[in-house]
Each structure stands twice: as structure tokens, then as C-alpha cells.
């Protein structure tokens, strides 16, 4: 084996970190809207399209926003790498 890792692993590591960061952002969004807006007394709730604002932002907008963010992450930041080749020759050329 040559020294150093498979070049594809560096890409994969980076993508794993991006996925984790997105999950953390997802949690913050979900939590902040739910308990930030939803924590006040129900009498003071405002409503959007019939839903309480906390629910609308946390669950409905959150769902749409993070689906779009996954799309952006995958389309613009994730790289396509070949899976099958054992060719270490490809190492220098691609990166």
C-alpha cells in the first residue's frame, strides 16, 4: 500500500462534517422557533395560514428550508467520485 489515504476519503470526510453541521443547524432552527415562539402563553400566539406561528416556522418552514439546504449542499458542495476503481493512479490527476 502506498502511504497516505485513498484520496476519496478526504472528500468523504468533508461531506460527513457538512452533513453533521446541517443536522445541528436543523436542530437549532427547530428548537429556537418551537420554544422561542411557542413558549409564550397560548393567548398571545399569532397565526400564519391557520397554524400557530411557532409550529409554522419550526415544522413547516423548517421542513421546506432544510430540504432546500440538502439540495444545495448536495448539488454544489458534494463531489462525485468513482466507487469501484482501485486505481491509485487516479490519485494525482483528480486533486
Amino acid at each position: 500500500m502506498k502511504k497516505g489515504n485513498d484520496w476519496r476519503y478526504r472528500i468523504s470526510n468533508k461531506e460527513a462534517i457538512m452533513g453533521t453541521v446541517l443536522a445541528i443547524l436543523n436542530f437549532i432552527w427547530w428548537y429556537a422557533f418551537a420554544y422561542g415562539l411557542g413558549g409564550q402563553p397560548v393567548k398571545e400566539y399569532t397565526y400564519i395560514l391557520g397554524f400557530p406561528a411557532w409550529f409554522f416556522y419550526s415544522c413547516i418552514v423548517g421542513f421546506i428550508v432544510f430540504t432546500i439546504l440538502v439540495f444545495i449542499m448536495v448539488k454544489f458542495f458534494f463531489k462525485e467520485v468513482p466507487f469501484d476503481s482501485d486505481d491509485n493512479e487516479g490519485e494525482g490527476s483528480s486533486r
Partner: peptide, 20 residues
């Protein structure tokens, strides 16, 4: 809705490395 994250997290974290 905590389950939304399952849609992308598993594949992102195990990622291409697992497949390779």
C-alpha cells in the same frame, strides 16, 4: 419532525467512505 434529519444524515455521515 425530529425525524426529518434521518433523510440525509445517515447517508451523509456514513457517506462515500462507507460505500467505498
Amino acid at each position: 419532525m425530529a425525524q426529518l434529519v434521518t433523510g440525509y444524515f445517515t447517508l451523509a455521515v456514513l457517506g462515500k467512505k462507507f460505500a467505498i
